[in-house]
Nucleic acid binder design. Structure first.
Lengths: 173, 173
DNA sequence: TCACACTTTCATTAAAAACTGAAAATAATG
DNA sequence: CATTATTTTCAGTTTTTAATGAAAGTGTGA
């Protein structure tokens, strides 16, 4: 007797697989994106074996990617009493997911870039004319833009969903 | 006699190399990011051979990545009269770069995701209770969030830098 | 129309990234 | 403390992605 999945589980299957492909285009490992999709749509927290079985992947792979997701603060570990296994549960609130990803990307991707730009700007601060000056200016422009973006992001990150929505609605007119 | 680079060119060298590494963390091919960095800081448009020589990469590699950057609208082709070579010039205006990247990412990454979410939501629209309903709701929430984000992005994309700045300043208080 | 300058493609190779599976480490239980 | 359940690591393998370099294609001008 095979497992005849209910309709919503078929849609979920599709979601997981496709989210995985989209992930790779985003530069996110396929398995990580799939696990995230799986957990975002999980009625209950899942353990490593659940994930392994569902996605037909190895223990090492499941483990590593689950822990990476925890490192991204997109997934948290749940323990049930009388059970020594770890269960994993994804944040499902879309606004919270957005905030979390914004924070992490800022930290991992934007801030290192800003550091590089500042370093390059500092090294050329005495260039007064020509290409050297232009280079310095370009580094500074990029730095200012990203730094300003970070400020905006920090503000949004600190907002409640409702306030952010209100604010954005005003923009849309 | 070796080429003793001026100070700003050393900083540029650093910028190109490091921007390349940052790129890979972003999911952008190293060479593509390096070429982009090189062109963003180029006093003059560069031809394929210039890029090959500077980055010590093959013709095929240089060609493919230059054309990919053109496909991203981050670089445009310049022709000089009396010269049949193509020269490449990157957009240097930070705000324009931002707009361009936003547009492309929307098209390549967000819109396909929205399509998937809508499909999954549609397939489960009749689920009235329990996990099936929750799944449907989750797909809808994600869809709504991303669609709203696209609207905001479209508005920002259509704004002049100055207006966007003014608007953001208001947010920052 | 031939030769040349340049661009594009693509089969092959190289490099990087992701995944496996099993062993080692850890920690809970009795 | 010994057993057992579970997590973590990692050397080796597979898969994917990127880069090479040479050949094919294109189009311009003599």
């Amino acid at each position: 007797m095979s497992k005849e999945l209910p309709e919503w589980e078929k849609a979920r299957e599709e979601f997981v697989v496709q989210w995985g492909s989209l992930g790779t285009q985003w530069g996110i490992p396929r398995t990580m994106a799939q696990i995230h999709a799986l957990l975002m749509t999980a009625p209950e927290p899942m353990c490593t074996d659940d994930v392994m079985e569902r996605l037909e992947i190895s223990r090492g792979n499941a483990h590593t990617n689950l822990k990476d997701l925890v490192g991204w603060n997109l997934v948290r570990i749940i323990t049930k009493k009388g059970d020594r296994k770890e269960y994993f549960e994804a944040e499902k609130d879309v606004w919270k997911i957005f905030i979390t990803i914004s924070k992490e990307r800022k930290r991992r991707e934007i801030e290192p870039a800003i550091n590089l730009l500042r370093d390059c700007a500092a090294r050329t601060k005495d260039e007064a004319v020509g290409p050297g000056k232009d280079f310095h200016q370009q580094m500074q422009d990029l730095d200012e833009f990203l730094s300003f973006g970070v400020k905006v992001a920090d503000t949004v990150i600190s907002m409640k969903h409702a306030s952010a929505l209100q604010w954005a609605m005003r923009l849309l007119g």
